[in-house]
């Protein structure tokens, strides 16, 4: 790739939900550019067939019988939850939806 702009760095940081400090933007810009140059090499690969490999396994997915298994106690659910109110997991206001 020719160049990677500051805006593009901020865009991928947004997609990945990672805040970047002002002084980090340039550092990551240089590093990401290097990695993007690496992956660009895929464009030079010729003569491959169209079939795609999603996973190396050859078998089909076994299906699970629709019967109920063990569930967690609500107290266990809350063990690792950083913020909760009553039975609920709490997050800052969800604006968008």
């Amino acid at each position: 790739m020719d160049k990677l702009s500051r805006e593009e760095v901020l865009h991928v940081a947004h997609l990945a939900r990672i805040n970047l400090e002002e002084d980090e933007i340039e550092k990551f810009r240089v590093q990401l550019k290097k990695l993007m140059d690496d992956i660009d090499k895929i464009k030079d690969v010729k003569d491959y067939d169209e079939e795609m490999l999603i996973s190396p396994v050859d078998h089909n997915a076994p299906l699970r019988e629709d019967s109920e298994g063990k569930m967690l106690e609500y107290k266990t659910v809350m063990k690792n939850v950083p913020h909760s109110t009553g039975n609920f997991v709490e997050v800052p206001v969800m604006l968008n939806e």
């Binding site: 997609l15 990945a16 990672i18 990551f28 990401l32 990695l35």
Partner: peptide, 10 residues
């Protein structure tokens, strides 16, 4: 961070 940013880009 680098890997998930590049992964998101890809």
């Amino acid at each position: 961070k680098r890997r998930i940013m590049v992964g998101s880009y890809i």
